[in-house]
């Protein structure tokens, strides 16, 4: 059995008096591709923000790679990569300059080499010397993924990675996630709305409803558990309406 890479114990968060996450218990093991599903405002982005150390939880604990996100922030950030929902980066700098900057901050010993290898790996070396400000959404997303993996993290957090992408971009992203998981052994934690992609990419799903985790299981077990439903979308709708 794989060791847990992400562990949430009684995790709660509130903005002022408005509860966003309520007593979440969740374990994700190494090598999983975890799809976090939920309606708008369910608390998915807040969960990622806590796991990437950007905000502190109101109560409960969260551990990534065995490190506490509050008390061992620096250790957590050494083993994670993060792609926010909207990737912008520094528009006046080229893709390579952006990536080199983030690689250096992550402590990569040979940033230039790491950037070249990452761009080659993502098959977008032609973007290296172009200014990010002139990029389309799809190009920005690819460079965004490059910045998230340039230091070869153990865990990759993706917040709505398919938003704004055309069907071809969505397919490319799916292939990239599968390769990162297969080739580099990265554990992937992905917030998404796109249920068709979840069934093709994820090994495990979790469903968040108004800040509460109402379901978590493998894709295989999920389809076995709901034999009457034709697709993951049907299963998700049933869960949402039942709760």
């Amino acid at each position: 059995m794989n060791s847990p890479v992400i562990e949430l114990r009684g995790l709660s968060h509130r903005y002022d008096t408005d509860p966003v996450l309520r007593d979440i218990h969740l374990t994700i093991e190494a090598g999983e591709i975890f799809g976090f599903l939920g309606h708008n405002g369910a608390g998915k982005t807040t969960a990622i923000n806590i796991l990437t150390t950007l905000i502190e939880p109101t109560s409960g604990t969260a551990k990534v790679c065995g490190y506490d996100v509050v008390t061992e922030r620096r250790d957590v950030t050494r083993c994670i990569g993060y792609l926010p929902a909207e990737v912008r980066m520094y528009g006046h700098m080229t893709a390579a300059e952006n990536l080199e900057f983030f690689a250096k901050l992550s402590g990569v010993t040979d940033p230039r080499k790491a950037v070249a290898e990452t761009l080659d790996y993502l098959e977008c070396a032609e973007l290296a010397n172009k200014r990010v400000g002139s990029f389309s959404t799809g190009m920005r997303q690819r460079i965004g993924i490059a910045q998230a993996i340039v230091h070869r993290p153990k865990v990759l957090f993706l917040d709505e990675p398919t938003s704004g992408l055309d069907p071809l971009g969505v397919r490319q992203l799916r292939d990239t996630i599968l390769r990162l998981n297969g080739d580099l052994g990265m554990t992937v934690f992905m917030n998404t709305h796109l249920l068709s992609e979840v069934s093709k990419v994820c090994t495990t799903i979790g469903v968040l409803n108004h800040g509460e985790l109402i379901y978590k299981d493998s894709i295989e077990e999920t389809t076995r558990r709901f034999p009457d439903e034709a697709s993951l979308e049907d299963i998700y709708v049933r869960m949402e309406t039942a709760s």
């Binding site: 923000n49 990437t52 150390t53 950007l54 620096r74 950030t77 050494r78 994670i80 993060y82 926010p84 909207e86 912008r88 980066m89 520094y90 528009g91 983030f102 901050l105 992550s106 402590g107 910045q147």
Partner: peptide, 16 residues
């Protein structure tokens, strides 16, 4: 600049 480019989360999600 960090606000406009929304790069602060990318910096702060690193060991900085």
């Amino acid at each position: 600049r960090e606000r406009t480019n929304r790069t602060l989360p990318l910096i702060r999600s690193r060991p900085v």
